Simulated assay, not measured.
Amino acid sequence: MQLNFSGLRALVTGAGKGIGRETVKALHASGARVVAVSRTGDDLVSLSQECPGIEPVCVDLGNWEATEQALGSVGTVDLLVNNAAVALSQPFLEVTKEAFDRSFNVNLRSVLQVSQIVVRGMINRRAPGSIVNVSSIAAQVTFPNLVTYSSTKGAMTVLTKAMAMELGPHKIRVNSVNPTVVLTAMARKVWSDPEVSRKLKERHPLRKFAEVDDVVNSILFLLSDHSASTSGAGIFVDAGYLAS
């Protein structure tokens, strides 16, 4: 399936590493103009070298005021990928206020804020749009020491549906992609114990975790007109985990 995003402008958060970075590269290769948002300046420098012409924005999305200043005048955006996230591993009884607030500010509140900024522009232009929220199977099942992360992703499920319902009349679609473990740099920190990782992988019917490209391809499908009648839904890129 050939996807062509020429003439469209996309914004991707969490663009410095992992899924976000590969999404930027895929959109750029497919003809889109891309605004790449990350809190790590060095990542944006190297990404700009790989993808000449992208628009880098360095901001910590956990900071509401800084985000408003950095993106409030971002201009025309047709496609939005809310990918930025943190996964802070703590047992339930050891979850701190700082970790809880940081997780919800980055993983959920920024989705609301960035989407509001982008959607206001779409509505003012009376233009259709597509938004993809990058969630996780942790929205459906729990894992040890990830109570806060799972809570943010569970809330994202409802937020995605609420956005789809309210924005549908404006021809704006909102969906999510829910992958299982993808061994990005962030995931490797959480699943650093090889024995724990092996046992979890064996619980997947396909006996594997997801690859970054698997997730990116699902994001691109939901952004594209090939999913023109899909909104409020989630694609589970989980190697069959939820079926087992």
Rank of each mutant, 00 (worst) to 15 (best):
M1I: 11
Q2C: 10
N4W: 08
F5K: 04
L8G: 07
R9C: 08
R9Q: 12
G16N: 03
K25A: 13
A26Q: 00
L27F: 04
A29C: 04
V35P: 05
T40M: 13
D42K: 12
D42I: 11
D43V: 06
V45S: 06
C51Y: 00
E55C: 12
G62E: 11
N63V: 03
N63W: 01
A66W: 03
E68T: 12
S73M: 14
V81Q: 00
N82H: 02
S89R: 10
S89L: 11
Q90C: 01
Q90N: 08
P91K: 04
E94A: 06
F100C: 01
S103P: 06
N107G: 07
L108C: 06
I117R: 02
V118I: 09
M122E: 12
R125V: 06
S130F: 05
S130T: 13
I131T: 09
S136K: 09
A138R: 14
A138Q: 15
F143G: 00
P144M: 04
V147N: 03
T157D: 15
T160F: 07
A162T: 13
A164Y: 10
H170W: 14
K171C: 13
V174S: 10
N175Y: 01
N175L: 02
V181L: 08
V181S: 00
L183D: 02
A185F: 08
M186I: 15
K201W: 07
L206W: 08
K208V: 03
A210K: 05
E211M: 11
V212L: 08
L220M: 09
L222D: 13
S227T: 04
A228G: 11
S229H: 15
S229K: 14
T230W: 10
T230V: 15
S231V: 06
D238N: 10
